[in-house]
Structures are given as structure tokens and as C-alpha cells.
């Protein structure tokens, strides 16, 4: 059976190779660029790092993988990139099995690791050129120059890595990962320890990469980062992928809204006349917070305002606040622990 399917595949590849380039460009490309099926990983210590992960990353999207420390984010991307032995299950990168067709699979992938690991005494130019050749690409000074210029590293091209700041080293790692023109870029905590300005620059860079057709998978602790950039979000906790959702959809579905009333005076407790409403006191009793689901056809706001009037509780200002991705993330993890 296997031999037969191999022969079929070889024939298909041969036929594909015979097609003129224009025809190849016209072929529709699969929508899924990374496919993880039933992936589990147990380390030699017995630690069960990943439990039956199923995940599909779509071509051209920015996918953010969120999770607390030790959740399995780095293990997952390390397996996809070939750094850690896969356990049970299969992973395909652009249709290539990462074990049996590791060359084709890895050729498609670039990885920016979490740690700032660089060869201290190499120059920026040499280390980026080294990465390109390591991934089987012919030397192309013009392309390396473009990458370095895009990352504002051109004036540092002859500097030794040991002389660069942390932010510059992070850019060098990105340049190395992009040196072989990958179609999929993994960014493991790309802005960890990076100042606010540089973080925003990185976000711009990631968006520009996505615009050029690169699929981005990033792990992050900064929920703000995922909220800012991601198209879809995956939440992993204790080795389990607890949800994968379109970010906007997730915020729409799980997001709550809060009505915050700034009182003219302060309250010590919620008056019994308002007990029917889900209210909380905040800011030392000077704010009443009412949490509601904005998608409900009927909210309790009108009744609440009526009851406030009757109870002679006056307020000087009011505002509403949509819950952030961070709040959604925290509540998801809290539910998961229960």
C-alpha cells in the first residue's frame, strides 16, 4: 500500500516538475500550511509536554500561540522545526512530513528562537550569509543586503555580534531566519525583553512579512501582542490545546462588557435595592461596575439605571469597557483549572 502510494506520489511530482513555470504559479496552493495531527510528546523524564495536539495553520496568516510558562508552546514549535524529536503523531509543513521529508519541510521554515543565541565573534554579514547557505541556498549578497536594510541592520553589517545590543541581536536572529526566504516563520517570544519602541517596530516588521506572503506563527506572553497582530489565536495549557479561534471571533464570543458608573459619593456595600443586578463595587466604593454580555438581546441596563434613580444613587460619569484578550485568556485558564 505504502509502496503504491509512493509510486503515485513520485509520478505526480514528476508530472509537476514537467509543467512550465507559469502553470505552476497558476496552481492553487493548499490553504493549510502547517498541519499537526494527534501530536503527543513525553520527555525522558516522564513529563507529558504535549497531549494529542491537532492544529492547522493557514497560509498567510499570523497565528499566535498563547499559554503560561511550561504550557508546551516552545515544545510544539521546536518539534515542528526539527529541534526536538517528535513523539506520537504527524506534522506536515506545506504538505511535507517533518520526519520523512525533513529537507523539504525545513526548507520552508525559518525560526527565531526565544534565547538570544548568536556566535559572539562572527560579523552580522557572515552569520546571516552562513544561515542562508546552511539552508541550502546559493549565496545571494543582494538578498542579504535587502534583509539587513529592512531590519535596519545594514550599518552594522561588519560589526561583531558581541558588540550589538539585545534588540539588535534579536533583529540579527530574525535576519538569519529570513535569510533563506522561508514561507513560514516561527517567532518564539519575539519581543521578550525588548523595549516598547522596538516592540512596536517588530510588530510592523511582522505585518510587513505577512504582507509579503510569509505565514507567521508566534508564541508570546504578551497578550497585547497577540491582540495587536494575530489573525487567529491558539491557547495551550498543560500540553493541551484548549482552543483555536479567530481572534475577532474569540473576543466577540467570549468578550464581556462592563458599564462603569462613577458615583458622586461612595458606597460601603451594594444597597439591597440593587441586589437583583450583578454589580460590584470598585475604586474604594466610588465606582459601580456592571458586567454584561453585549450580544444578549436584552441587557439589564435600563432597569439598573431605573433602580439607581429610585435608590437615589447619583453618578457623575459613566463609561463602558470591552474585555481584553488578556482577560479572556485569564478566564479561560481559570475555567481550565476548575
Amino acid at each position: 500500500m505504502n509502496r503504491k502510494s509512493n509510486v503515485v506520489r513520485q509520478r505526480a511530482e514528476r508530472d509537476l516538475a514537467r509543467l512550465p513555470e507559469a502553470s505552476l504559479l497558476a496552481l492553487p496552493r493548499p490553504r493549510v500550511v502547517i498541519s499537526v495531527s494527534n501530536l503527543s510528546k513525553t520527555y525522558a523524564s516522564g513529563f507529558h509536554a504535549l497531549k494529542d495536539i491537532n492544529l492547522e495553520i493557514r497560509r498567510g496568516e499570523i497565528f499566535a500561540l498563547l499559554g503560561p510558562n511550561g504550557a508546551g508552546k516552545t515544545t510544539l514549535i521546536s518539534i515542528i522545526c526539527g529541534i526536538i524529536n517528535p513523539g506520537v503523531g504527524t506534522v506536515l509543513a506545506d504538505g511535507h512530513d517533518i520526519v520523512t521529508e525533513y529537507r523539504a519541510a525545513r526548507f520552508k521554515i525559518g525560526l527565531v528562537p526565544q534565547e538570544l543565541t548568536t556566535d559572539a565573534f562572527e560579523t552580522v554579514w557572515d552569520t546571516v550569509s552562513f544561515s542562508r547557505r546552511l539552508f541550502g541556498r546559493r549565496a545571494n549578497p543582494g538578498y542579504i543586503e535587502k534583509v539587513l536594510k529592512d531590519l535596519s541592520l545594514w550599518d552594522k553589517k561588519d560589526s561583531k555580534l558581541i558588540t550589538l545590543s539585545g534588540g539588535m541581536k534579536r533583529r540579527v536572529l530574525i535576519a538569519k531566519a529570513l535569510s533563506h526566504e522561508p514561507e513560514i516563520l516561527f517567532l518564539d517570544e519575539p519581543t521578550a525583553g525588548v523595549d516598547v519602541d522596538l516592540r512596536r517596530e517588530m510588530w510592523q516588521l511582522v505585518r510587513a512579512l505577512r504582507a509579503s506572503g510569509v505565514t507567521i506563527v508566534l508564541t508570546t506572553h504578551y497578550i497585547e501582542e497577540a491582540e495587536e497582530m494575530a489573525d487567529r489565536v491558539g491557547v495551550i495549557n498543560q500540553g493541551e490545546l484548549i482552543l483555536v479561534e479567530d481572534k475577532a471571533e474569540l473576543m466577540h464570543k467570549l468578550g464581556r462588557k462592563r458599564l462603569i458608573l462613577h458615583l458622586e459619593g461612595s458606597l460601603e456595600c451594594i444597597p439591597s435595592a440593587l441586589a437583583a443586578h450583578a454589580l460590584e463595587l470598585a475604586a474604594g466604593g466610588t465606582e459601580l461596575v456592571y458586567t454584561y454580555d453585549p450580544h444578549d438581546e436584552q441587557t439589564d441596563i435600563t432597569a439598573l439605571l431605573g433602580d439607581l434613580y429610585k435608590a437615589d444613587i447619583r453618578f457623575k460619569d459613566l463609561r463602558t469597557k470591552q474585555s481584553s484578550l488578556e482577560e479572556i485568556f485569564v478566564s479561560l485558564l481559570r475555567e481550565e483549572r476548575r
Binding site: C81, I83, Y102, A104, F107, E115, T117
Partner: peptide, 12 residues
């Protein structure tokens, strides 16, 4: 130094 990640993730 940790740079081994690049060798392990390369198509070699």
C-alpha cells in the same frame, strides 16, 4: 551557546 538550534532545524 545554543546556536545548535540552527543546525538542528536546517535541511541537512
Amino acid at each position: 551557546s545554543g546556536t545548535i538550534y540552527e543546525i538542528l532545524s536546517a535541511p541537512v
